[in-house]
């Protein structure tokens, strides 16, 4: 049995249940790094190349945290998960493509990385080949890998169901793996229980409904975004994110654009934003974007233009980087909420 480390950032927020179940079923021990903290961020900023975006730097920090605790770090090279878009070449952002190399070359004393290439463009069944490749590294038989992968996909489906019922990813993960000490710290559990009581769209007079779109690793990582979801829930705002929407609903938005972007997570954010802009019960849209993110220079502008054009829904863009002060985010969020409340009173 090997110890396998998973950094709690980037694709973790969408695929952890799949990865964890798969590795568990193979009899491996999964160790997840703790939620991003100052220590992890500082380490990542130190290790990573200077002009990377903050999520990539944070990933370096998580990998460094795991290095002396595990035998392998699970860092699959995410290339593409579907054939989609105008050229049929929707990929992850270039930094994801080069991530395993970047991490390997910049973080000292790393254990071996499991950096299997994930390209599932043509056929969903390709995932079983990928599972077998990973199993190969760990010395497992192809048959076992297939079985484990099936189990993983089952749990992944459950996970997606939870998300589409309106549960936020960290809470859904806590529900699926209640006994995992690291995943499920006490604060998170209490938060989750509190949220379960209120997780219904706010009706007219009650609080506001705000869609928060952006990359999962920007909106669900409380440390790097100044706790924006917590700020909103304190103000009695019900939060909706693109990850609560099914692929079908998201992809329907593609035809409203002249052209989609090339990047998987970017398209999800754009489509999610477009969908919520058309929902009457949504009072406003917040886009959380990482400073120095290349794709976001397109995504942010696109969302802003669409927000004005389609619905004149109030739109707020919040940029995060390693120097982000919580105060700045708080001021903007408070002003945004005031604005929505005044508008609502007026109508």
């Amino acid at each position: 049995m090997s110890k396998i480390g998973i950094p709690r950032t980037l694709a973790y927020f969408l695929y952890y249940p799949l990865w964890k179940t798969f590795l568990d079923e193979l009899g491996e021990e999964v160790i997840v790094s703790p939620p991003t903290s100052r220590e992890i961020l500082d380490q990542g900023v130190k290790d990573a190349v200077n002009d990377a975006c903050i999520p990539i730097k944070v990933y370096h920090g998580h990998a460094a945290w795991l290095r002396d605790k595990v035998d392998f770090i699970f860092s699959p090279r995410l290339v593409s998960v579907r054939l989609f878009g105008d050229f049929g070449t929707e990929t992850f952002c270039p930094k994801f493509l080069g991530l395993p190399d970047m991490v390997r070359l910049t973080v000292d004393k790393l254990p071996p990385l499991i950096d299997t290439r994930v390209g599932i463009k043509k056929d969903p069944k390709e995932i079983f080949n990928i599972a077998a490749d990973i199993g190969d590294v760990l010395g497992k038989s192809a048959a076992d890998c297939k079985k484990a992968c099936r189990k993983g996909l089952e749990v992944h489906k459950k996970y997606q169901k939870l998300l589409s019922s309106g549960v936020l990813p960290p809470d859904a993960i806590a529900q699926l793996f209640p006994n995992e000490p690291e995943t499920n710290n006490k604060v998170r559990r209490e938060e989750h229980q509190r949220q379960r009581l209120v997780r219904k769209p706010n009706r007219e007079e009650a609080g506001l409904n705000i869609a928060v779109v952006g990359y999962p690793y920007a909106i669900y990582d409380d440390y790097i975004n100044g706790g924006i979801l917590g700020l909103l829930s304190k103000e009695n705002v019900q939060v909706f994110t693109q990850d609560m929407l099914s692929d079908k609903v998201l992809n329907r938005q593609a035809k409203h654009l002249l052209k989609s972007t090339f990047w998987y997570f970017s398209n999800r954010a754009v489509y999610g934003g477009l969908h919520y802009m058309k929902q009457k019960r949504i009072d406003g849209i917040i886009h959380v974007t990482a400073f120095a993110c290349g794709p976001d220079s397109v995504v942010d502008r696109l969302l802003e233009i669409e927000a004005h054009r389609h619905s004149s829904k109030p739109y707020l863009s919040i940029t995060i980087d390693e120097h982000t002060g919580e105060a700045g985010i708080r001021t903007r969020v408070e002003a945004f909420i005031d604005m929505l409340n005044y508008r609502r009173d007026k109508i």
Binding site: T319, A335, F336, Y342, K346
Partner: peptide
């Protein structure tokens, strides 16, 4: 019409 509809602050 007397209501804030949009705002921005300097970022970095």
């Amino acid at each position: 019409d007397g209501v804030v509809t949009d705002f921005a602050m300097n970022t970095v």
